[in-house]
């Protein structure tokens, strides 16, 4: 069983994200890229599959800043192989379509029964990586997964997905299969720093160059901007009755209560 985890580096929303007013694009110098959280869950799910079935887990990301650390961390957590795709381009929010093509090309050369990636990234302007990749490869795709149970014998997998409101649905699919992971069955494990450094020294991360993929973007990101938001609350003043009445009106405007 070969499991491939695709990790994407995204700007850390806990840190400041600045827009360059002149160009209307993100200020690259202030961006802190981290592995997308759901991709970390995809890795955890893959590691759980490895522990249960002895599968090999190959983790892939691109050569954006922090990509190497993400791979060392994945190795420290127990991944079998780590591949750094050299692309030599800075981060941009509209790149998922191109990334899907690059990974589709890469997957021609590496064995894969299951391809796991995060269900939805915060920069998916032009769609989700897993779904775009599945469309490229002509593979089936299941999203918002919370558990993946492959069966080597029948070469299939049972996938549980989260519909919300406490409702889940269960699918069965033939392999190979691409799965968008929402959350792993147990929270992503912590990699102690010494093991990350050991993985770094072990030189187990392999760089692979993928030929430039011709890609014609179908949409144009015209401008990025910070949302206009005033800091602090609008204070409602008056007697408790008046304030309660005013608040319910506001809630009604927002359709949180009926008319």
């Amino acid at each position: 069983m070969d499991v491939v985890v695709l990790m994407k580096m995204v700007p850390d929303a806990a840190q400041k994200i600045e827009v360059d007013a002149a160009s209307g694009q993100l200020k690259a110098s202030t961006l802190n890229l981290i592995p997308f959280e759901s991709d970390e869950h995809a890795l955890e799910e893959a590691l759980l599959i490895k522990e249960r079935t002895g599968a090999t887990v190959t983790v892939v990301t691109t050569d954006l800043p922090g990509g190497d650390v993400a791979l060392w961390t994945a190795l420290a957590k127990g991944a079998t192989h780590a591949l750094l795709v050299t692309r030599g381009r800075p981060y941009e929010p509209r790149s998922t379509g191109e990334l899907a093509r690059i990974y589709a090309k890469l997957l021609e050369t590496i064995p894969h029964d299951l391809v796991l990636t995060g269900a939805q990234a915060p920069d998916d302007v032009e769609g989700e990586l897993g779904a775009l990749l599945a469309a490229q490869l002509g593979l089936p795709y299941i999203s918002v997964a919370v558990a993946v149970r492959p069966d080597e014998g029948t070469h299939s997998a049972e996938v549980t997905t989260e519909l919300g409101g406490g409702l889940r649905s269960v699918y069965e699919s033939a392999l190979p299969l691409v799965v968008g992971i929402q959350t792993s069955e147990t929270p992503p494990r912590y990699a102690p720093f010494l093991q990350i450094r050991a993985a770094q020294r072990s030189k187990r991360t392999r760089s692979v160059a993928v030929e430039p993929v011709p890609f014609d973007p179908k949409v144009e990101v015209v401008a990025l901007h910070k949302p206009v938001a005033g800091k602090g609350a609008t204070m409602l003043e008056g007697s408790p009755e008046e304030v309660a009445g005013r608040l319910v009106e506001i809630l009604a405007e927002k359709e949180l209560v009926g008319g």
Binding site: P192, F193, L194, Q195, I196, R197
Partner: peptide, 13 residues
């Protein structure tokens, strides 16, 4: 917290 919980690599870094 790194040093006293035993995350020595992190303390070192």
């Amino acid at each position: 917290c790194a040093g006293y919980f035993g995350e020595f690599g992190l303390l070192d870094a």
